[in-house]
Design a protein around this nucleic acid. Structure first.
Lengths: 156, 156
DNA sequence: CTCGGTGCAAAGCTTTTGCATCCGC
DNA sequence: GCGGATGCAAAAGCTTTGCACCGAG
């Protein structure tokens, strides 16, 4: 990824347009949260996002984090997942390839994968049931079969 | 489904075997919960299961409901889903065709569908990433395109 | 200046846990 | 009778809400 700076600018522009369209205020908190998210790799939950902003001495409340995440999900800049039972997981969604998740039942590690055939399923099922399918969530659960798999060691 | 009685008997047998194998007690509560679940249609959450047992004047605690559900999930007689953010949804899993779910974003109605191609994806991805895939969860999100769709009316 | 957004803390909801009692084995 | 399982209620954990203050437009 060569143009990280450009990506963030692009994302900010999208968010700005979204806020204007919905007549919402462009508060510094909202953009700070957006920046923090796009500077991170992988999945994160509300608490870790909140903590990492606190560590940077940015004054935010959990309520604002939740509120901003909802907005970012609404304008498709962030995706929300419900992997475990509790604690939703989020990840940035823009400028990143569409993908699904494989979760190791031994250690709860999340691995990403792509398979274009899911698109076909989505189309077929939508047509069959008269639904316009907007997005999907596919999670595979399994365990690594390599005997030396690092997953065997760490256990959430 | 012609042999409902037989199905319940079969399921009880499986549960009994599971409990014996794990050296767990065959308590009346556990079997009452199993029966209640297999007498229901569609999805349910812990609270509605708890309430319907109370309504039948069966003395159970929420703790026991949670405990029993965990066991039933473990022996594959019940499936647990995390559709919304909170409140897990469950459904009976034995004697019922494997299927996935389409959720209407307008009314949160859950529709079931089958597509054998998911099996292929599971196999391919598992092989590719050296994982033995045990099960999966595919959820499509969309909205009904029929203008007279009943879903438009009711709104969760 | 307005009123939407924020921080903080309290409340809400689902799920888990502690403990005394109960009952399957 | 022993020790796992239950009922009850309290506690825990994530998320939402109420309210006074702040600051974007």
């Amino acid at each position: 990824m060569v143009q990280t700076a450009t990506l963030i600018d692009e994302v900010k522009k999208i968010f700005t347009a979204f806020l204007e369209k919905k007549n919402l205020r462009k508060t510094p908190e909202r953009f700070a949260i957006l920046e923090e998210i796009y500077s991170k790799q992988g999945h994160f939950d509300v608490e870790s996002l909140y903590v990492s902003m606190k560590e940077k001495n940015y004054r935010v409340s959990r309520a604002t984090v939740y509120n901003s995440l909802d907005l970012l999900v609404e304008c498709d800049l962030v995706t929300k997942h419900q992997f475990g039972q509790n604690q939703a997981q989020y990840e940035k969604a823009y400028g990143y390839r569409q993908h699904d998740h494989l979760i190791c039942t031994d250690c709860n590690k999340v691995v990403e994968f792509c398979d274009p055939r899911i698109q076909n399923i989505q189309n077929t099922v939508g047509k069959l049931l008269d639904f316009e399918v907007i997005h999907h969530s596919l999670i595979l659960y399994g365990n690594c079969i390599k005997p030396d798999c690092e997953n065997k060691k760490e256990s959430k």
